[in-house]
Design a protein around this nucleic acid. Sequence first.
DNA 1: ATAAAATTTTAGACTAGCCTAAATTTTATT
DNA 2: AATAAAATTTAGGCTAGTCTAAAATTTTAT
Lengths: 220, 220
Amino acid sequence: MQNSFTEENYLKIIHSLSGRDGAEVSTNALAESTATRAASVTDMLRKLAEKGLINYKKYQGVTLTEQGEKVAIKVIRKHRLWEVFLVEKLGFGWDEVHDIAEELEHIPSEILVEKLDTFLGHPRFDPHGDPIPDAKGNLTEPDYLVLTDVQIGEKVRMMGVLDHAPSFLQHLDRSGITLGSVIELKEVNDYDKSASVQINGGQTLFISLEVSKNLLVQRR
Amino acid sequence: MQNSFTEENYLKIIHSLSGRDGAEVSTNALAESTATRAASVTDMLRKLAEKGLINYKKYQGVTLTEQGEKVAIKVIRKHRLWEVFLVEKLGFGWDEVHDIAEELEHIPSEILVEKLDTFLGHPRFDPHGDPIPDAKGNLTEPDYLVLTDVQIGEKVRMMGVLDHAPSFLQHLDRSGITLGSVIELKEVNDYDKSASVQINGGQTLFISLEVSKNLLVQRR
DNA sequence: ATAAAATTTTAGACTAGCCTAAATTTTATT
DNA sequence: AATAAAATTTAGGCTAGTCTAAAATTTTAT
Ligand SMILES: [Mn+2]
Ligand SMILES: [Mn+2]
Ligand SMILES: [Mn+2]
Ligand SMILES: [Mn+2]
């Protein structure tokens, strides 16, 4: 049985909200993420449970079954591969590709995904630094840290973003911060936690806590 | 107001069945092409007429309005560009791409289409020899002839196919006939109209009337 | 421990797109 | 021109996915 566009979106969102520990996801959280009402979510959860894609007990929240996890990861793989295509091959900015990938991720051909993957040279990460699951469905989340966890004086490498909103990504573009940038944390203002950082040994700039909280980095 | 997947398919099919003279298309013909029942077609026609995309008078058949024609041509442009991508970039065979393009053609971003077009080098024809409408919506059908209209002794160039079925395209592959092949018509059997043709000045082979009727060619 | 608040589910209803069966209109045949 | 056949539309109904309002359950606060 094929899964609908809508079902795939639910599974993907449950995967994302569930986090790496596979925690239960609430009806309200899903209503928020799907931009629907809680009542609609309940309807869909019953259907997904019926199909064996989620573990669902009334009032208890949901988790993905193994089968549901597999479906979710396939969709994520497609989403991220298409994003690489859009940025690397078509020349889109990293702030422009999410909505388009949101549609492309539901194109059903398995062989299409594999050929696309080959065409792109089997990329490991998407334009936002998110890891791309392999063809077998293995998804390993690298354990980056958030910039707020970095000590003053440390030099780290920018590896990804937590917020994928175009406005945030454009803000980073204007600041000259891209994937791979070396960020040296110069100082942190005690009052509002805004920080002064040096990018690639060059320009020093101030970033707000809001920005720091959304930057994933790696010690070198 | 955005058009749905289903509405786009109706418009594309009406365009195709309407032919270059913009003839009226019957409810039954649409039911056949959409693999639905006539009653369902009627429902959809009322909706499309409501939206100003078709000219519809009960019992009279339909034609596209200017607006409907524009939408249809956009979908056709997307379909054919994606087919070029699948064949030229991903390495699919021309017999494998139709169903995938049938999905991709409904991805809505205008800018995506234009970037894809640029990436592909503004191709004029798709892998089946069908012309690709330009960004402004101009679609010029080249006037090829069908191989059955060719005289014995003539040398023509293979430019397209009328039947897009994978089985037919695979048959052509096995026969060594591809877009651009030079076909010399050696003889036509009076009894069943099967023909003997020489491909690219090399191998001579027999083709049935069924094949001849579906080959578009051009005098040189 | 109970009451209030928050969350979740149920009930009932809507739209898009489809169906079958019956009625209507058009077209073809006598 | 009248009738038979074919094509088309209407009537009524179904499912997926959504909604609002009301009921049920769980959680939080007193
Ligand atoms: Mn994305
Ligand atoms: Mn991404
Ligand atoms: Mn096609
Ligand atoms: Mn084609």
